[in-house]
């Protein structure tokens, strides 16, 4: 099956390239504090100009995440968010949006316990387009690749400042969908973003890879989005968004909060036309 040709991620990035725009990619923890709130936030994000949505599948031991996403995961788990709940959420989102790509981001254990093959199959059926497993680096991700592509899903790989030249090339050639460049050595949400340090490795990756490169970790506001947006094909904003939504008690407020914040980032990204 060669469904990858029609993967929404590829379609979306091709359109953005044509328009000379930078992708705005919000990260939202699924089920924090409720599935209804997440669904409202996803819709509001798209309305505010988000190009792709990263949906966090909560895990009890998120070792690469800072306190904001740790707490969001705890709230989501307490609300009973498991893989079937996330698939159902994407399915409902798809009922009103057939174009915006959705990537699930999470850790391996929930996927393993659900069953790799079953997870891939059910994710694809729900309308998911890609899977990013934080604790599956290149070597451990390889066994997944065939399984995912069989379902038309992309496996999103991470690159980091510690990723050396040779490994960078391996990663670039294995990548599908896009490459997620981790802006600094640290956990999500830390205030360590330094656009100057990011510039050279991202340029090198874009040179090597046939897929777009997006930057994540530490993008907090319009200014930082604009700064790193100029260097890459897309910008991920996670903790800063999740933190704002943490105070929203109902779906309407969650949607409004997400929409307002993402709207300001969209404007910032569009102010630097390429």
């Amino acid at each position: 099956m060669s469904a990858t040709v029609h993967n929404r991620i590829d379609v979306r990035f091709a359109a953005l390239r044509e328009q000379g725009r930078t992708a705005l990619i919000p990260f939202i923890t699924a089920g924090d504090p409720s599935i209804e709130a997440t669904l409202a936030a996803m819709k509001a994000a798209v309305a505010a100009g988000a190009d792709l949505i990263e949906l966090g599948v909560p895990f009890s031991d998120p070792m690469a995440d800072g306190p904001v996403i740790q707490k969001a995961s705890e709230r989501a788990i307490a609300a009973g968010t498991d893989a079937p709940a996330v698939f159902e959420l994407v399915n409902r989102f798809r009922a009103g949006d057939t174009c915006t790509p959705v990537v699930l981001m999470g850790y391996l254990n929930p996927v393993e316990i659900h069953g790799r093959e079953r997870f891939a199959r059910e994710a694809a059926a729900a309308g998911v387009d890609g899977l990013l497993l934080v604790d599956a680096p290149l070597e451990e991700a390889a066994p997944f690749q065939a399984l995912l592509s069989e379902q038309g899903l992309h496996q999103i790989l991470l690159a980091a400042p510690t990723t050396g030249g040779e490994r960078r090339a391996q990663l670039a050639s294995a990548a599908t969908g896009f490459i997620y460049y981790v802006a600094f050595a640290g956990v999500t949400g830390a205030a360590r973003l330094n656009a100057q340090a990011v510039s050279a490795p991202v340029a090198a990756l874009r040179e090597l890879a046939n897929v777009p490169v997006v930057i994540g970790f530490g993008v907090r506001d319009a200014a930082s989005a604009r700064e790193v947006g100029a260097l890459a094909d897309g910008v991920v904003v996670g903790s800063a968004l999740v933190e704002r939504m943490a105070t929203a008690t109902d779906p309407a407020t969650a949607g409004a909060t997400a929409g307002e914040f993402l709207g300001s980032l969209r404007a910032a990204l569009d102010s630097t036309a390429k």
């Binding site: 680096p137 451990e140 980091a160 400042p161 990723t163």
Partner: peptide, 8 residues
């Protein structure tokens, strides 16, 4: 099974 940052 770790984040990419720790591989090096």
């Amino acid at each position: 099974y770790v984040a990419e940052t720790l591989m090096a």
